[in-house]
Write a protein that binds this DNA or RNA. Sequence first.
DNA 1: TTCAAATGTAAAAATGTCTTTACATTTGAA
DNA 2: TTCAAATGTAAAGACATTTTTACATTTGAA
Lengths: 62, 62
Amino acid sequence: MKNKILKFRKDKGFTQDALAKKCNVSRQTINAIENDRYDPTLQLAFKIARVLNTTVDDIFQP
Amino acid sequence: MKNKILKFRKDKGFTQDALAKKCNVSRQTINAIENDRYDPTLQLAFKIARVLNTTVDDIFQP
DNA sequence: TTCAAATGTAAAAATGTCTTTACATTTGAA
DNA sequence: TTCAAATGTAAAGACATTTTTACATTTGAA
């Protein structure tokens, strides 16, 4: 599943670690999702979308 | 995670089994998600949303 | 009321996500 | 160029989702 996490994250000036902390997950989890190694749970997808001020439908493309 | 699957599904006149087939999952999976026993994967959330002509953000409420 | 269709549930196994620990590589500012 | 910060990756274990098989209950139309 492709995603625009990098784009939105850079726009906000967040590091992977900073985004991870705001989402209450590990940095490795954000890294893996951003680099498309696996998909987040639906819960985490919503958390990422909200922290980055966007929607699940906008940030993820199946 | 709450959801509006029942509402959208009834609007389309689909049974759980019909929706399941359109999403390529088992009827039990749709039943479990509709009744909030667990959350779908992000992939499946997108599939359900599309089959029901709506968005992930509209059909699921974290 | 009766009967089939629809829905609810359970348990075991397969698969996928996430954490932790640990180390390597890249990047950019001084 | 150098050094720290940021990023990439791996492996083991914990936990969550999904499938399959199977059976029970509910619902609604005839």
